[in-house]
């Protein structure tokens, strides 16, 4: 952090000498202008518009009517699927987020070992993350299929009578967690980058002091990685709340709505029941939850995230 700021300051002094270029002041704005246009047309504009129509009864065809907070009141007080889908998403997030972080970190540590052919392993481990959510869903539909699936076939070797994963309300959500974990190589890469940035002399100094592997992991690796853990934690929570493709393709939300995610509820209200205003209210509620969770994670991070700069400032 502190090094970042100091380089910015020195750059500022360098660049201030360039004021003699007349065009200098608008050139950077020209460079960012395509993004700015895109931002207003396709992000900021729609964001505001979405907030506006959330206060309307807005069918896809027919008359629109201002209804105030009616959509919000309706979903909190009179819509069982709102609460049940929210519960499914929370359950998914509670299972998915910790597993995803732990597995990604474990794989990153494994890939950071100095043995031969590591870059090949790194590429192979990342392969599941390059394919589309739809293809991933299909492959896993095929792996999970109850009677004929390869997973249950292998489970039968160790004497386990596998469930009919996707048709069993107790297992469908677990199956989705497993399928999602398979495609999360990006977190692994980000952790790996963080590991490579930890100065080796910290470990060497710790070894001289007689620290064991476990001590080094908890006293050096985890603190040094904590900003990246924070970043990955936030991104994983956001991803968990947006999970839609798997449910749409694998189960359609079933069986017995056990995989009817909140994102699916929002989607169906809009594009199956065509209640655009109501769905926008749902989506805004989701946005607020994600913002709130991010805020909480950020606030709590001062307790557990360690920034290198802190030491120097004290």
């Amino acid at each position: 952090m502190s090094t970042e700021i100091s380089t910015n300051v020195s750059k500022q002094t360098v660049l201030q000498t360039k004021k003699k270029f007349k065009w200098g002041s608008i050139i950077p704005f020209l460079f960012i202008s395509p993004w700015v246009i895109g931002f207003f047309a396709f992000t900021f504009g729609p964001l505001l518009f979405s907030l506006v129509i959330s206060f309307f009864n807005w069918p896809i065809v027919g008359e629109t009517k201002f209804v105030g907070f009616q959509n919000y009141i309706e979903m909190f007080t009179n819509d069982p699927y709102f609460w049940s889908s929210l519960a499914v998403t929370v359950k998914f997030a509670v299972l998915f987020v910790p597993f995803n972080l732990i597995i990604a970190l474990f794989l990153a540590i494994l890939l950071n070992q100095k043995v031969k052919a590591m870059s090949a392993f790194r590429t192979i481990f990342y392969l599941p993350s390059v394919i589309s959510g739809v293809a991933l869903a299909m492959i896993w539909a095929w792996v999970f299929s109850g009677e004929y699936g390869i997973l249950n076939y292998f489970l039968s070797f160790v004497g386990i009578n596998g469930p009919d994963w996707l048709n069993d309300p107790n297992w469908a959500l677990v199956a989705m967690v497993i399928a999602s974990l398979w495609g999360q190589g990006t977190m692994m890469l980000i952790f790996l980058a963080g590991l490579k940035n930890i100065p080796q002399n910290l470990y060497e100094a710790a070894s001289i002091d007689g620290a064991g592997k476990v001590t080094k992991f908890f006293k050096i690796t985890i603190p040094m990685l904590s900003p990246i853990i924070l970043f990955n934690l936030i991104m994983t929570i956001i991803a968990a709340f947006q999970q839609l493709t798997l449910a749409l393709v694998l189960t359609g939300g079933g069986p017995l709505r056990s995989t009817y995610f909140y994102a699916m509820y929002v989607y169906e209200n809009a594009f199956k029941y065509f209640k655009m205003g109501y769905s926008s209210a749902n989506a805004w509620f989701m946005f607020i939850i994600v913002l709130g969770l991010t805020f909480i994670v950020f606030k709590s991070s001062t307790m557990w995230v360690y920034y290198e700069g802190e030491m120097k400032n004290k």
Partner: peptide, 12 residues
């Protein structure tokens, strides 16, 4: 951080 669900309907 903006969930794509929020902008989906207006874009549509």
């Amino acid at each position: 951080m903006i969930p794509y669900q929020v902008t989906l309907i207006p874009l549509f």
